[in-house]
């Protein structure tokens, strides 16, 4: 059982998290991945208002599989974060507190995370069935035409993650590769 963390993640709570910590998140997140993130950054470039207020929020990089009738959501595990590298700095500048995904980030995103005291959480890739049991609500709130890539609002309940990059510059993957060499 990991450390319990309520969302939205406050700056104080973010400060207490360190790379390698096992954490369970409860509360609201927005989903987004390739197409949704690209659109939001494009909207910012054109001075448009985003469909969701990202201030203090987390984005979960996920495109869930369809829910069966009566289910909240289908399988819903993380997708690879590095495809969103180019969009994250702009969204962090707009107040995004961090994101949930899996895999490496590029250096610029990691530096931006530290600058804005953000956190990168990792969920276990390819365990979307298990992770879906920690999602209490899911509804599409923007870009429905993107199907699974639409922006959903999800309510998480004790959603298991590991802190990959903390707000102090701690980096779990970097630590692992340093130990190996």
């Amino acid at each position: 059982m990991g450390l319990q963390v309520e969302l939205p993640l406050t700056p104080e709570a973010a400060r207490q998290l360190h790379a390698g910590d096992e954490v369970e998140l409860s509360g609201s997140v927005y989903t987004g991945r390739d197409q949704a993130c690209a659109r939001m950054v494009q909207m910012l470039q054109h001075g448009a208002t985003l469909p969701v207020d990202l201030a203090g929020q987390l984005i979960y990089f996920v495109g869930p599989s369809p829910a069966r009738p009566g289910q909240v959501v289908g399988s819903a595990g993380p997708t690879t974060s590095d495809r969103m590298n180019r969009y994250m700095p702009a969204l962090l500048e707009r107040g995004l507190r961090g994101f949930i995904g899996k895999g490496y980030l590029d250096r610029m995103v990691k530096e931006t995370l530290v600058r804005y005291r953000g956190v990168y959480f990792g969920a276990i890739g390819r365990t979307g069935a298990l992770l879906s049991l920690s999602i209490e609500e899911a509804k599409v709130i923007a870009f429905p035409e993107l199907l699974s890539e639409a922006i959903h609002q999800m309510k998480l309940s004790q959603f298991p993650v590991v802190v990959l990059n903390d707000s102090h510059g701690g980096d779990l993957y970097a630590k692992v590769s340093a130990q190996a060499t």
Binding site: G63, T127, G128, A129, L130
Partner: peptide, 20 residues
């Protein structure tokens, strides 16, 4: 957890991963 995920997926006919 990966093995547990497989059990959940099979029991509920949920895909193991959302990327099917």
């Amino acid at each position: 957890r990966i093995l547990q995920n497989a059990d959940v997926a099979q029991a509920r006919e949920l895909p193991m991963c959302q990327d099917t």
